[in-house]
Amino acid sequence: MIQIPCPYCGLRNANEFASTGEVKPRPDVATATPAVWRAYLYDHRNPEGLVTEGWYHRAGCRKFLVVERHTQTNEIRSARPAGVAS
């Protein structure tokens, strides 16, 4: 089982967390066209490589995290609290 280096709790098993998928900026609601909004809803980079994604430490500190993970090796490059600049 992979481990997520929670910035609050330390290394923890991934089954304590929920993946919330790729981190994407929310378009401006007032100006978003359907194409822009639906790209936000549905499209993904889905790289075979480093991805920036959200994880929620559901069974731990209950903090939302932003994690950089390699999608082939599952190696984790960084993890920080959501909403905090990297």
Partner: peptide, 13 residues
């Protein structure tokens, strides 16, 4: 609950 926390920890910090 998670939805509320998510907003409070991201856009609603």
């Amino acid at each position: 609950w998670e939805w509320v926390e998510r907003w409070l920890q991201t856009a609603g910090r």
